[in-house]
Amino acid sequence: MEDIAQELLNGSRLALSRAITAIENEYDNATAIMKKLYPHTGHAYVLGITGPPGAGKSTLTDKLAKEYRKQGKTVGIVAIDPTSPFSGGAILGDRIRMNSLTLDEGVFIRSMGTRGSLGGLSHKTADAVKAMDAFGMDVIFVETVGVGQSEVDIVKAADTTMVVLIPGMGDDIQAIKAGILEIGDIFAINKADHDGADKLVTELNMMLDLDGVMKEWRPPIIKAVANQNIGVTELVETFKKHHDHIVSSGQLTQRRTERTKNEMLDLLSSNIGSYITRNIVDTGKIDKMVEDIKAHKIDPYTVVSEILQNMLK
């Protein structure tokens, strides 16, 4: 494939797939691809789906995607599962719940392993989303790994974040702890046909009441039973309401400005990191530096300032 970015823009699904691989594996052509795709991004509505393992994120994503397809929207899905910290391998199993979307030409699903990232996404998720955005997907779902309490990177990547919870996971003190419950623009109580769903709704409402100040957007709590398609239409309507709200309140612009800034800083740090690896670590210069510091010939602070000064020359 000569020009992956161009073929992607021309509508080749294989090119989209190859572009994501290049990005994820940091192939030499990845930056060139992203440069070419970047002007074509910014059109998609990015929905984050997060929640604990087994909450039904994939099943719900599958149903929501179908609902958007009924409305004629094209859908991209980036589904993330954990990479083993021991072997580096991963079982990416989110597609199992989405098999009936596979042959829909208006849908593209890509599974990614976290590859060492701890925030619930992989380092390259944002760029994979951009590739789907440039391809022309109207709605892009980002499904995080099953999260615990503090994996909140999704909020930086998505326009709207939905936290999926299920009944029976703990008492109300869990609901006032910090973390994922703070990032929900929408709460979905999945498996709401199980005992304890109403109690969970009450607990979440009490948590939201504690916010005190009247916010412009109080996260709605929607009960759903994903595998029976219950609550799905309501969720899509709620996404629409939230989207309208963040557009009219200027929050979407604000969120995207913040995201652009974060992404730029990440890119900068990662390029500085590679510079250090290439010029200091791989060349072995670091060993001499460490020796000198150990022998107290020089202090680490001076060494670091010198490295930075040399880099900026």
């Binding site: 990416l92 597609r95 199992i96 098999n99 042959l103 699903i109």
Partner: peptide
């Protein structure tokens, strides 16, 4: 990295999933 798609897949589904992934 192993993508597992579950039971009862048609050849068309397998090929499309292989391409997307």
């Amino acid at each position: 990295e192993v993508v597992y798609t579950g039971l009862r897949q048609t050849p068309e589904q397998i090929a499309e999933a292989a391409m997307q992934e």
